[in-house]
Amino acid sequence: MDSFVDGHGYLAACTAGLPTHGTLAAMRADLDEWGRAGSCPVRYGDLVEEGRALFAGIVGVPSDRVATGSQTSAMTAVVAAALPDGAEVVVADGDFSSIVFPFLAQAHRGVRVRSVPLDALARSITPDTDLVAWSAVQSATGTVVDSGAVVAAARAVGARTLCDLTQAAGILPLSVAGFAVADVDVSVTHAYKWLCAPRGVAFATVSEAAQDWLRPVQAGWYAGADVWSSCYGPEMRLADDARRFDVSPAWQAWPGAVAALRHVASLNVRSAWRHATGLADRLADRLGTARQTQAVTTLPDPTGSRLAALTAAGITASGRAGRLRLAFHHWNDESDVDAVAEVLGR
């Protein structure tokens, strides 16, 4: 907890994480360097490569399977563009729009999106399904999906897989969800939530098989085999690994992101999960509600009155889809449980 800024009363890691002191120091140093006209693109490139390797270690894939970007929707759009005309995509009802909208935007060429209940996702995959896309942890509810069952069902019929790890990476041991990142064709992750990086740094993992059917439709100079020899056309020679799907980095975000990823890589994710779910379950016990054993616990709040009461008490939470969301992360402790229980118990 001491590594982070004071996060007491902040229960919104599912909206945006908080920085460590190291992250803030790295970003301030970078701004000072920029102010002295000392910024160096090559140094930023070194940070991108360090960040790529750190993220690869966190999610358990080789670094040459990781592409870097700035938004999950843009990465998902690369997958959507690679589907054949008339393809069927299966998604879960109410999943986050960044892994739904890019497929809906392909309707002009006959791509069909079939939305099914979350608890029926795996059994809704059929031989007609070309791809299934889902979030390992649902944004609106914090529900941990049985991703292993989804992957197995997709493999059984030859369907491709896309998993969003934005609400999972940095907090959820993937064994809890029954799968490994290497099991899916593509994963996408924005690092500004549970990984506590500045907004503007995102990652995709691309399997060797997926690299053969994806098209690098966003390719620019940063996707080149040699970045600094790829600044001008018309000749194009892309990287032969997942870097061919890189986009030019938002430089100022990377010093803070690398500091954040270094910190996450030093932690035990199982301990983090036990800490977060333990606090959430303690709150459920205090409120007399059912334990959800999730890092994000939710309560009905159709009018927003519960969220408003917490806000008035100086507690930061969030509301989605008619529910109050309370996210517990490294900086929270039992005092946060007591504070929320006192407000909601009124």
Rank of each mutant, 00 (worst) to 15 (best):
D6G: 09
G7H: 09
G7I: 00
G9Y: 10
G9D: 00
Y10T: 01
A12E: 04
A13R: 02
L18K: 08
T20E: 08
R28N: 13
A29K: 06
E33D: 15
A37R: 15
A37S: 15
C40H: 11
P41M: 01
Y44W: 10
L47N: 03
E49K: 04
R52D: 06
L54F: 08
I58Y: 02
S63W: 04
D64R: 10
T68I: 07
Q71T: 12
T72G: 15
M75F: 10
M75C: 00
A81L: 13
A81F: 13
D85H: 15
D85Q: 15
G86K: 04
G86E: 09
A87Q: 10
G94D: 12
V111E: 00
R114E: 13
R123K: 14
D128P: 01
D128W: 07
A133Y: 08
W134K: 09
S135T: 12
A136K: 02
A140Q: 12
T143L: 13
V144A: 02
S147M: 13
G148H: 11
A154I: 12
R155V: 06
A156I: 05
V157E: 07
G158H: 01
R160P: 04
R160Y: 02
D164I: 01
Q167D: 14
V176H: 07
V176F: 01
A177I: 11
V184E: 00
D185V: 05
V188Q: 03
T189V: 14
H190R: 06
A191R: 02
L195V: 10
L195I: 12
A202R: 00
A202C: 09
F203A: 05
F203D: 01
P216S: 07
G220S: 12
G220M: 03
W221L: 11
C231R: 15
Y232R: 14
F245R: 08
P249S: 13
W251H: 09
A253P: 02
W254E: 06
A259D: 11
A260N: 09
H263F: 11
V264R: 15
A272F: 07
W273A: 07
R282T: 15
L283H: 02
V296K: 02
T298W: 05
G304C: 10
G304R: 06
L310K: 02
A317S: 13
R320A: 11
A321Q: 11
L326D: 00
D336Y: 07
A341D: 05
